[in-house]
Simulated assay, not measured.
Amino acid sequence: MKATLDDVKVVLTRKESFTCLSKVVVFLVIFALGVVAGLWAATGPRQYYSSYTSILLPSTTTVYRGGGGGGGRSVGCRPGVEVGFAEFVAPTRLMHDMSDEQLFWRATMAPASGAFPFERVPKVAFMFLAGRGVLPLAPLWERFFRGHEGLFSVYVHAPPGMVINVSNDSPFYRRQIPSQETSWGSVTLMDAEKRLLANALLDFSNERFVLLSESCIPVQSFPTVYGYLTGSRHSFVEIYYNQNKQCRGRYSRRMAPDITLPQWRKGSQWFELSRDLAVRVLTDTKYYPLFRHHCLPSCYPDEHYLPTLLNMLHSERNSNRTVTYVDWSRGGAHPATYGAADVTPDLIQRIRTSQNPCTYNSRPTSTCFLFARKFSPDALEPLLNISSTVILY
């Protein structure tokens, strides 16, 4: 290019007469060379500059990608979506392609610094195990949550491929987590519960974690539930031992010596955990495999794993009771189901105020239950009719 410009310069400096046509040709050549030089300056250097600044000055947002078995795919959000700091500490997009192993590893990470570089308001994670893929009592829960945004998070484990049908302003909207098939009485139910815990732990503001079913209702107002859980020094996992086939008879001697019969416990599936205990559950690689291999029907991992684990390792952190009321007075393999005809102010008041006092932060209290089950879909309308006057939401 330089040689061509020099040749033109020589031609122009010659003291020879040019015809009009010659002058036009020379002018066009110079103009064309100028255009080419301008384009090169505008594109070539910028491309090199851009490639270097992307290395030296990376974006303030990061796309998190999986390694190892992840195949380099984006994890934690949809592929190609950049994740900023706010999304990292409190994910709003719950769908991801992490395996359980990757998810549990990610969820149990904890910052070394005790201080948070953001304003952290403790939240309660409400985790719904919706085995049928529906939430018939969602309108009642929506009324319960209304006006308390920022103090709670919602997570739903439904069968794969099923979408919870709610409006886009519902607290349940787009709150489904990646799920797998479950079957009653198998270890897959406990897998689902751990999956809910792990996804909820991704939000650094979640401090308490309560497991619920699609047939559960809140029997206290949101402020009461929130204050009760965030103010508690203990978790709420029911733990007991009976000399009968429903407890002692489910123990497998193949679990010894890691789990012995005197250490074996039973309890309600419906638990509530503090953040530190939720992390400890997910990091347990010693005892959970024993339940996977040896707790088979008629042994049910969801009724034995957490009670046994917490009794062995963290009994001082637990209240040994559940905050979810279940009526077993009618006998049988399943608890009583409340239909529309059963819903009365008296029923709710009896559940809200326990006749058998329990302890809260080591002091006696009559407020023992925050939730109750099992309520059928046709109970929704009478529950809505009394919610504002009786349940106070």
Score class of each variant (00 low, 15 high):
residue 185 G to D: 15
residue 16 E to V: 13
residue 254 R to I: 14
residue 188 T to P: 09
residue 126 F to P: 03
residue 381 E to K: 15
residue 329 S to H: 10
residue 159 P to D: 08
residue 146 R to V: 07
residue 99 S to R: 07
residue 164 I to A: 06
residue 19 T to I: 06
residue 5 L to H: 09
residue 283 T to D: 08
residue 184 W to D: 13
residue 70 G to E: 13
residue 278 A to M: 03
residue 167 S to M: 00
residue 256 A to E: 15
residue 62 T to A: 12
residue 316 E to L: 10
residue 247 C to R: 02
residue 145 F to P: 02
residue 358 C to T: 03
residue 111 P to S: 03
residue 217 I to G: 01
residue 329 S to K: 12
residue 305 Y to E: 04
residue 142 E to P: 08
residue 125 A to F: 10
residue 138 A to I: 04
residue 199 N to D: 06
residue 131 G to D: 05
residue 332 G to S: 07
residue 255 M to I: 01
residue 276 D to W: 14
residue 264 W to I: 04
residue 268 S to D: 05
residue 58 P to G: 03
residue 287 Y to N: 15
residue 267 G to D: 05
residue 90 A to T: 00
residue 166 V to E: 11
residue 202 L to H: 08
residue 117 P to M: 01
residue 263 Q to Y: 00
residue 257 P to R: 02
residue 248 R to I: 02
residue 181 E to W: 10
residue 118 F to Q: 08
residue 45 P to F: 14
residue 222 F to W: 09
residue 363 R to I: 00
residue 336 A to W: 10
residue 311 N to L: 02
residue 91 P to W: 00
residue 222 F to T: 04
residue 219 V to I: 14
residue 104 F to I: 14
residue 220 Q to G: 03
residue 102 Q to P: 09
residue 319 S to D: 08
residue 209 F to N: 11
residue 256 A to V: 05
residue 78 R to E: 14
residue 80 G to Y: 10
residue 386 I to V: 05
residue 257 P to W: 03
residue 107 A to G: 01
residue 17 S to R: 15
residue 283 T to V: 12
residue 238 E to K: 00
residue 335 P to V: 02
residue 162 M to H: 10
residue 386 I to L: 07
residue 163 V to K: 14
residue 239 I to A: 00
residue 354 S to R: 03
residue 63 V to T: 11
residue 342 D to I: 01
residue 33 L to Y: 01
residue 100 D to G: 11
residue 144 F to W: 10
residue 270 W to P: 04
residue 327 D to V: 10
residue 190 M to L: 15
residue 67 G to M: 14
residue 325 Y to I: 09
residue 319 S to P: 11
residue 190 M to C: 13
residue 56 L to A: 09
residue 164 I to P: 06
residue 216 C to S: 11
residue 281 V to M: 01
residue 22 S to T: 13
residue 14 R to S: 07
residue 137 L to G: 02
residue 383 L to K: 13
residue 23 K to M: 12
residue 250 R to A: 04
residue 79 P to S: 04
residue 163 V to H: 11
residue 149 E to S: 03
residue 192 A to F: 09
residue 272 E to L: 07
residue 188 T to C: 02
residue 224 T to Y: 15
residue 208 R to Q: 03
